[in-house]
Write a protein that binds this DNA or RNA. Structure first.
Length: 486
RNA sequence: GGCGCGUUCGUCUAGAGGCUUAGGACGCCGCCCUCUCAAGGCGGAGAUCACCGGUUCGAAUCCGGUACGCGCUACCA
């Protein structure tokens, strides 16, 4: 099996959205598959009917696709080992559980929830190191079991764990891990409603789907011995395990909703680029061993290895994500940002039908070094999309004195003499000329020009603003400013 | 409580016995650039490598213990 092409899977339970921790798990599986010319499978673990969430699978798939994590086989895609929804494989689990019952590796249990609860209480009261099922139903004879079954009594099927054994396995990230079977409970394999538990379903499916490497979160490490036992009881070769470190809140607890956004779609809605999110998450627990931090998905796929995944949990640092988002934004061509900007303008209720694509692309180019998110184009340079309605008070006080009106009139006239579409240098030399003529420093015109055209004290280069706005609009804004500020 | 896993600057990390006066990145501070704000360049502060003991000529790196953190402990995944 190990010599076959690697096959890995991302096996989320559809809880409604894709958690960033899940994204990291999916990403590492995807990268491992790509790096090793293997297959990446999406399997939906929907064996808990109480947790059914409408539309959850669609959301999950959409989020994965948005991130660019394409899988080779999955519920909406098919494949040779389907179906890929566990709720559609119930018969398979039942058959396998029965096979285990026949071999004596599993048994029927008819204990009621009430008895189980009582048992637990007793064990806690007796201060037993751990509460486990007491194998009460293991002593039932075949006839007794048959009778109860015939009578339609509700049952579960439990794993029959023999005490006093060492259960060990190797893990790419944790190396050697060993458990004492005394600490392993007779886990329920088939629940009262006929659905399998995660433990049975994941082992059966991983085997049937020929999964070679199980790459999942560290929260599964403690239940891996149960899975190891199952592989042994079935007589199956075990996959290679790799348990990933957890993603943490700033206070180092497991990343949770309460302390910020955890869903991929939250970050998408906030305007993060998929490239930045994927890049950031890839670095939470892995690095190539060099200083490179800016990666695209295909570059990660060339360098990724499970051996270089860290053991310790990683805090999700939003500041660094923001930085990476800015880096990815700067790396993009203005044309690639155009549609996103239009979407943001629409979302902000700002019409742009009077603006050409070239106009918007100029805005994008000129502000690129100054924003981290596309929506910041609107926040930091509204004057490119809306008229100037007010002027920065500090700049007004500092840069607009009684002489400024006349000087700006002179500048405006000089601008008027320029050709139809002046370039940066044209505006610059016009301004320099006026300053020289008036015998004043260029700053006396530069700051009022910025204030007139943008109403703000910060922004792109002063001469970039008239170029983007165009001569007519620039002149109009200067005239407006003169009447309103003088 | 039991079992398991983990522990290098605030955060993400490099480091796989001598190359380390522990390197990089984010964030923070300063300087330069400059019409502003950024970006960029340069520099700075920031880690007794959790602690204790052992192995070794030599340990962040190997071993043991302790502490702390996290995970699991369901007919949830």
């Amino acid at each position: 099996m190990i010599n076959d092409t690697p096959r890995v899977r991302f096996a989320p339970s559809p809880t409604g959205y894709l958690h960033v921790g899940g994204l990291r798990t999916a990403l590492y599986n995807y990268l491992f598959a790509k790096r090793n010319n293997g297959k990446f499978v999406l399997r939906i673990e929907d064996t808990d009917r109480n947790r059914y969430v409408e539309g959850a699978v669609e959301n999950l798939i959409n989020a994965l696709k948005w991130c660019g994590l394409d899988y080779d086989e999955g519920p909406d895609k098919g494949g040779d080992y389907g179906p890929y929804m566990q709720s559609q494989r119930l018969e398979i689990y039942k058959e396998h559980a029965l096979q285990l019952v026949e071999n004596g590796h599993a048994y029927y249990c008819f204990c009621t929830p009430a008895r189980l609860e009582e048992l637990k209480k007793e064990q806690q009261a007796a201060k037993l190191p751990q509460a486990k099922y007491d194998k009460h139903c293991l002593s039932l004879s075949n006839d007794e079991v048959a009778a109860k079954l015939n009578a339609g009594e509700q049952y579960v099927i439990r794993l029959n764990v023999r005490p006093g054994q060492k259960v060990a396995f190797t893990d790419i990230i944790r190396e050697y891990v060993e458990f004492d079977s005394n600490n392993i409970d007779d886990q329920v394999l088939i629940k009262g409603d006929g659905y399998p538990t995660y433990h049975l379903a994941n082992v059966v499916d991983d085997h049937l789907m020929k999964i070679t490497h199980v790459v999942r979160g560290e929260e599964w490490l403690s239940s891996t011995p149960k899975h190891v036992l199952l592989y042994d009881f079935f007589g199956w070769e075990k996959p290679i395990f790799a348990h990933l470190p957890l993603l943490l809140n700033p206070d180092r607890s497991k990343l949770s909703k309460r302390q910020g956004d955890v869903a991929v779609e939250d970050y998408r809605a906030k305007g993060y680029f998929k490239e930045a999110l994927v890049n950031f998450v890839s670095l939470l627990g892995w690095n190539a061993g060099d200083d490179k931090e800016f990666y695209y998905l295909n570059e990660l796929a060339e360098k990724f290895s499970l051996e270089r995944v860290n053991k310790a949990g990683a805090v999700f640092d939003i500041e660094k994500l923001n930085w990476l988002n800015a880096e990815h934004l700067r790396a993009k061509d203005p044309a690639d940002l155009l549609q996103t900007l239009k979407d943001e303008l629409t979302a902000a209720g700002i019409g742009f039908t009077d603006k050409t694509d070239d106009y918007l692309k100029n805005v994008i180019a000129v502000m690129k070094e100054r924003v981290s998110f596309v929506k910041e184009y609107i926040e930091k340079s509204p004057y490119f999309f809306l008229p100037v309605t007010s002027y920065d008070e500090n700049s007004k006080l500092k840069n607009w004195n009684p002489d400024t009106g006349a000087q700006m009139t002179r500048l405006k006239d000089e601008f008027l003499k320029l050709g139809d579409s002046p370039v940066k240098e044209d505006y610059e030399s016009a301004l320099k000329n006026v300053a020289a003529e008036l015998n004043i420093g260029a700053g006396k015109l530069i700051h009022p020009l910025r204030l007139s055209t943008s109403g703000m004290a910060a922004g792109p280069g002063v001469y970039d603003i008239p170029v983007v706005l165009g001569k007519a609009e620039t002149v109009k804004r200067i005239e407006d400013a003169i009447t309103r500020l003088q």
